[in-house]
Design a protein around this nucleic acid. Sequence first.
DNA 1: CAAACGACCTTTGTATACAAAATTAAAAAT
DNA 2: ATTTTTAATTTTGTATACAAAGGTCGTTTG
Lengths: 230, 230
Amino acid sequence: MTELAVFGDPYQGTRPPTRRRGGLADDVVLYVREQILTGALKPGTKIDQEALAAALDVSRSPIREALVILGQEGLLDLIPRRGAVVADLTPEDIVDHYELFGVVGGRAAAIAADTLGEDEIEQLRAIHERFVDGTSDDLSALNWAFHRIINRTAPRRTRWLLRLLERSVPADYYEFTDGWDAQAVQHHAAILEAIVDRDPDEARRRMEHHLHESGVAAVAHLERQGFWED
Amino acid sequence: MTELAVFGDPYQGTRPPTRRRGGLADDVVLYVREQILTGALKPGTKIDQEALAAALDVSRSPIREALVILGQEGLLDLIPRRGAVVADLTPEDIVDHYELFGVVGGRAAAIAADTLGEDEIEQLRAIHERFVDGTSDDLSALNWAFHRIINRTAPRRTRWLLRLLERSVPADYYEFTDGWDAQAVQHHAAILEAIVDRDPDEARRRMEHHLHESGVAAVAHLERQGFWED
DNA sequence: CAAACGACCTTTGTATACAAAATTAAAAAT
DNA sequence: ATTTTTAATTTTGTATACAAAGGTCGTTTG
């Protein structure tokens, strides 16, 4: 894909940015995170640096940097001098995480209700329309775009935390849960309404509710997938 | 200090644990974070890995791991292939950060109001008494102990986030602000009351308010210290 | 037979070495 | 004189080498 192709992309700004390629450590993070969040790496499993390095065909340097990042995200427990272990990730953790997502995202929604420009509200409405419509092939991208418009008005530190919370949890999975889209449409509609009404408190409550339910859906989905089997 | 001394320590559990010594990277993190949060390292300053390594007399390996951690904390901007730069830290960032602390700590307080055992409430009251009294030499430790009892009942992920938020912000400074202790006593009393009343919603509101005011105090203190001069 | 000790092996943490990108400085061209 | 190009230098990212702590397993000792 060339740089120029972006200008013709109808999804402009409705999609997570294709991460500007950093170093090998980023790749390792992506790989290991995926392994953990899909359940391929079970809690308690020790990460052998040398083995991982060999498997991904890189040296231990980027491996170690990746482990530090995943440790900061809470996905690994880093015990000095005895290595990294996959952290527990119980249903309670998932629910808790989405609840946190809720209070932080709720804050963003409240701010959005206060500060979003009319033009941005119009964008939000347009995206929501397409989401309701459901004919779009990429509902996940539309969902992301909806939240993005709300979140990007939040102050810097709040945006930072939202990005952090977004990364370190199973996502993009529950979105295909049966009936989830219908529920999400309802939630989004309610949030949009509160924002249009310039009602920050209601926007916050509804965003909290939305993310709480998303957490429940995520747990249900993971359970169905056998994430906690064996 | 020997291990055994702990058993005779009257401050048992009222003090942040003296970090179990990890690797050199931890030391570097502590050092650089201190430099940033005291204003010695101004936003925009580039971190020269080699120079830092030389200054701290370690190799670049632990330096790089430290920079990754500080990047995750949002104190550094890590730009691939061109190094680490001290991130902006405006008054708005500080306020925002404490506001986030508020919503997360508020959640913890709400949970505490619901789930704290009578014995723990008694501990909380005892600590608060000593805090009110003010004769203790270490008000900061008592303040920390108060919050700790509340926070440790929170679920795992919430505790993780609280620790993260606690680290990456100027703290322990505003505590010596003129009049802050008096205000904190008021706030703590109100929070304690809500917990005793088993009123989660009020506990949350009051904790949010407490941390909001703490943020304002922190900014005022930093401004007075000339943190944003030059 | 169980617990404790110790030699051996493995794995982590740190330092150093090397390759490639980015920055700087100098030279050439407009 | 200013801008562009190109060569030299610095600095990052990655790989490898080395030292020390941790773990293992067999032996010894009570």
